[in-house]
Design a protein around this nucleic acid. Structure first.
Lengths: 278, 278
DNA sequence: CCGAACGCGAACGAATTTGATCGGAAATCT
DNA sequence: AGATTTCCGATCAAATTCGTTCGCGTTCGG
């Protein structure tokens, strides 16, 4: 925990540890290095060397060992906390995935919006793409719990954006939790445009996360009609928590690679289909 | 404490928190670039270079690398979010003004936060920079109405971010209106870190916009202590709506180019000063 | 008491990063 | 459409950092 440094005064360059003072164990030094990196987020090699009273070569060696244990990340000139950087690699990869399908779906869904509408838009990459189309409409009121959707719409002055409150879920940049659900309680809009992780005819829309499911339910509950935006990779798959029952879904916008039988089942349950041709 | 950048590496400082400024790692710079692009939708090359304190050549190299990872799209003059050339509103230019001062102020203000704190962070470029420092702390709960602050903190799992609801004010990417104020009503945190457009000893903190003023008041009201982050360009100027009275301000963090007399007046009114030396 | 093993620091070549410059391409203006 | 301004790509040079080898001193086991 706390280290008492036997002697901390000027150690000259040529000075060695021949004077009977207790040597600083390597483990102590490394512990100190980790503390420094954790405290500052990122520390330069030189600073570390000064701080632990060792040469830069030694610190480099330590950093190499610590990196192999996953305790920190090395960079040119120093080290940083692991995970602090290089984040979001997974997220943005999703954006470019099937972007043609998403764009086509978003285009088609845009036809379901009219000037002067009040709508709800849920989180997701498809709905984000959909939101981009909304800037053309005049006098739109959009309620969303997605920071990305809000940001997309922030530029257009003719769209009024209302964000729900709530705690931020960093992985999808959306607001969840009871505060988010509660802020939707008194709301009533015409249509909700939401996505999800899976859609089947039997169980409807679903998502693998409980908190996300709660808000999705609240989003759908605030609208008279529910529009689901889902590309073909989600049609026919079921995930953990059901969010919207099949008979509560009024429209489904998807692409023509979706399995035909599932679409037919959905249609039989009263879901109006909008299939984008890629 | 001198803040000269090229560290003289002959001196052996026993201080572990060395004051010399650390070189910015390439990974950090790229992360910063991504954040800037995300936040503004589209940023020009020149502004990016200015913001990260590097040459345009280096930024160009970074952009090339980031594009190959699919993290952004680059084209003549700058870079945009991947997926769409959504915004044609020209590259925003308010990205980096007096960024050195802001960074120093943010550093200083970071000392007013402790692990386990619950704090409020208001909108503004300075507070955004401040928020970047918060990722080092453990078990932090942050309430904010700024999308940019939320986004900065979204990457760090040790910080819980709560966003107020409300209508989005696109120009500053913050939530305002009665919903925002109402969502802060039942809240009580230790400190509020807010910025503003002007600060005088007579009228305290002020901002030119009524709606923004309302939320600022609510933000300050939710905290036991109010910390104002303001660079020297805001000290001594008064704008339309008063948001926080002088005697409600407990701390002021600013830089040493602020007019001395105003600081003295503020100090006489009980405001504790933290002046960053550039 | 002695040799081997180990940790640490110094030195030097290699590799990486960064900034500057210049010709050519692209966009904008007239 | 032509001219001009701006921006991009590539090569080069300087600085910094990294990896490796070697030497020195200490410690441990016999």
């Amino acid at each position: 925990m706390n280290f008492t440094w036997p002697v901390d005064y000027d150690r000259d360059v040529s000075d060695t540890q021949s004077d009977g003072r207790r040597p600083v164990f390597a483990a102590e030094r490394r512990q100190r290095i980790i503390e420094l990196v954790r405290a500052n987020g990122a520390v330069s090699l030189r600073e570390l060397a000064q701080a632990v009273h060792s040469s830069e070569v030694t610190v480099r060696r330590d950093l190499r060992a610590l990196e192999s244990e996953g305790l920190l990340n090395r960079h040119h000139g120093g080290a940083t906390l692991p995970g602090e950087l290089s984040r979001e690699a997974g997220y943005t990869q999703k954006v470019s995935l099937e972007s043609a399908e998403k764009a086509a779906i978003a285009d088609l869904a845009g036809a379901l919006v009219e000037d002067g509408d009040a709508i709800v838009v849920g989180p997701g990459t498809t709905t984000q793409e959909f939101a981009r189309r909304l800037t053309r409409h005049a006098e739109l009121a959009v309620v969303t719990n997605s920071l990305l959707v809000a940001q997309v719409l922030s530029a257009s002055p003719r769209v009024e954006v209302m964000l729900t409150g709530g705690t931020l879920r960093g992985s999808i940049l959306a607001l969840v939790g009871s505060a988010a659900e509660h802020s939707l309680a008194g709301l009533r809009v015409r249509r909700a445009f939401i996505s999800g992780n899976g859609l089947t005819a039997e169980r409807g829309l679903s998502t693998p996360n409980m908190q996300v499911a709660g808000v999705d339910r609240a989003l759908a509950g605030a609208a008279e009609e529910v529009v689901v935006l889902a590309d073909h990779t989600k049609i026919g798959v079921d995930t953990m928590v059901q969010t919207v029952a099949p008979d509560r879904i009024d429209h489904l916008v998807t692409d023509d690679a979706a399995p035909r039988d599932v679409l037919d089942d959905l249609s039989a349950r009263g879901v109006r289909l909008h299939v984008a041709e890629i």
